[in-house]
Design a protein around this nucleic acid. Structure first.
Lengths: 338, 338
DNA sequence: CTGAAAGCGCTAACAT
DNA sequence: ATGTTAGCGCTTTCAG
């Protein structure tokens, strides 16, 4: 492989001139610039990323960190990941995927210590997420998709759960629903500080109160079995709610499928709104799920933008942004039954 | 941040001794080793990855490359990605995610030219995949999940589609099914050289012939609409097949859901087997899909292992492995109706 | 507008 | 068993 010195020799200039042609940090005469460019092309030269990283200050790699999940990952989450990667690329950065157990803070520490990455983007943030302290102490730029409770000085992008809860509840209220069941994440997850769940719970409770409705909460695991558990709980309720708000796609799908088996008709007998579930997942279920969720791309893009601004020093202070949810009405919602 | 020289000074040894303590490439007396280790700990020292990469021969990053998909990504694909990442980590490598349009070979070329990554793992390989030539020319180690047609000298791990087709067809035949419909990927995808589709088609055709069954093929897009199209096609068939083999989860879910809407009972009227679909996706659908698919983890692990062996020179020649599929019988299959 | 030269923080060959 | 030293391929300051 050709190095910068090879290019310099071929072009008949000094090595540093080649560097300056590439970086554009110095004005170069058109003539020499052309010669250098030609030499680069002829030798098929690309600067060595490791040498650039070591000599310069720019290390063009970002890390995307998410805790390993026991429930497995959904296509919704993958959409966040690919969107983040694409945005990073567009801004001239590579994206490293990194995952380890939430409690294993050492892993993150070692990643950061190696100074391989210029910044870290955190996913699946909990309200008391230990990763922020690690990153702060390490003095490395970071941003997050999601936010902890103590976030005054943090740069993050998050879903606007308050608005999402309101939109969903209002929509149901306007359809005449008075009583709803809320399928939450497991108690374990809640205690672990699952931010989306906790904030959604707050938002829904408030909206339900404002509209004078009643609400029953059922925590279940995010899988098909959890969905069946939720249906069992539903059938034990008297009087039965006419609508369901649900987090998490595997649990929601499980619930809807179990309801179908039990001859409960959706949406005639029961309306269902899935919160935070992506389009692909929503359309895998029958009936297709009405969803309230932010455009996943928008969240990832904004988060990567925030991180890159921090890295490049183009911004002082915390950049915080809540992304407005979008409601997509599909086939799982309808007027409350008489 | 502390450097190696800081550690050396604190420990009262030469810088290279610190390096050797870390790499273990030289025997060091217990006494000095202990002093160095203590100094490292005290300074919270971690070697700089860029400096190591530039000076040494080892660049501890792998790239996972997949073409951008218009149909979006499924949880099944994400499982491959996370499994690959975990395996890479276990072997001491970082994993870079990289995606661009299949035709944009320049993108891959520039990634490789930067020498940022020690090797490349290709996903979503087509039978005449242009990426192999790029990588071969660049002289960088690579391996793939999936294989092109011309693969004599390549290292790859792939699903054993022949076996998968046989298992699925045999299972249906043993249940008394005589006539099946095969939901294939779109004609466009087939012409683009979708390996799994092409090999599965071959395998199924052959198995069907051996068992004296009949088969109708329907190509559709991998989304809910595609699934509905497949159902329309199904209803136009006379006599109607009693079983369906289907590739791709979104199309399969769309088909099953449309069948439900049309009061076709699965599995009483019609059995469905999904090929290559992961467990999470299979269980999002009602009835839960019987699947024939390789354990995604096994595929990714073997592929990463092959790549790392190539990188570390521990293997000459091509490592090729087909992963045996597993059949998971769920609720979408049953005896052929009378 | 261009060149020379000093590092960046390591690895590894060459010493002893 | 340990130290010395020459790079790895760049960026960037210093010097014209």
């Amino acid at each position: 492989m050709a190095t910068r010195d090879d290019v310099a020799r071929l072009a008949g200039v000094s090595p540093s001139t080649v560097s300056y042609v590439i970086s554009g940090r110095r004005s170069i005469s058109e003539a020499t610039k052309a010669r250098v460019l030609a030499a680069m092309r002829e030798l098929n030269y690309t600067p060595d990323a490791f040498a650039q990283g070591l000599a310069g200050s720019r290390r063009g790699i970002l890390a995307l960190h998410f805790p390993t999940s026991v429930d497995g990952y959904s296509s919704t989450e993958f959409e966040y990941v690919t969107a983040a990667m694409e945005r990073a690329r567009a801004l001239g950065y590579h994206m490293l995927l990194w995952s380890n157990p939430m409690t294993d803070v050492m892993g993150l520490e070692s990643l950061v210590g190696q100074k391989l990455v210029a910044g870290v983007l955190l996913m699946e943030v909990s309200i008391n997420d230990p990763r922020f302290d690690v990153l702060r102490r390490a003095g490395i730029p970071f941003a997050s998709i999601g936010r902890p409770d103590d976030n005054a000085d943090l740069s993050y992008v998050d879903n606007d759960f308050a608005q999402a809860g309101r939109i969903a509840v209002d929509y149901l209220a306007d359809l005449g629903h008075q009583s709803i069941m809320y399928i939450n994440v497991s108690v374990e997850d809640q205690e672990a500080g699952n931010g989306p769940a906790i904030r959604t719970t707050r938002a829904i409770s408030e909206a339900v109160r404002l509209r004078g409705m009643s609400m029953q909460e059922v925590p279940v695991e995010n899988n098909a079995r959890g969905g069946r558990t939720a249906l069992d709980a539903y059938r034990d309720l008297h009087p039965r709610p006419t609508a369901v708000l649900a987090l998490k796609e595997f649990a929601t799908a499980g619930f809807v499928n179990a309801a179908g088996m039990a001859s409960l008709r959706i949406p005639e007998d029961l309306s269902v709104i899935a919160l935070g579930v992506g389009d692909r997942s929503a359309e895998m279920v029958a009936p297709a799920l009405t969803t309230v969720a932010p455009p996943g791309e928008a969240v990832s893009h904004a988060a990567v933008d925030a991180l890159v601004q921090k890295i490049e020093g183009r911004s002082q202070g915390a950049m915080q942004q809540l992304i407005a949810p979008l409601m997509t009405v599909r086939d799982s919602t309808g007027p409350a039954p008489r």
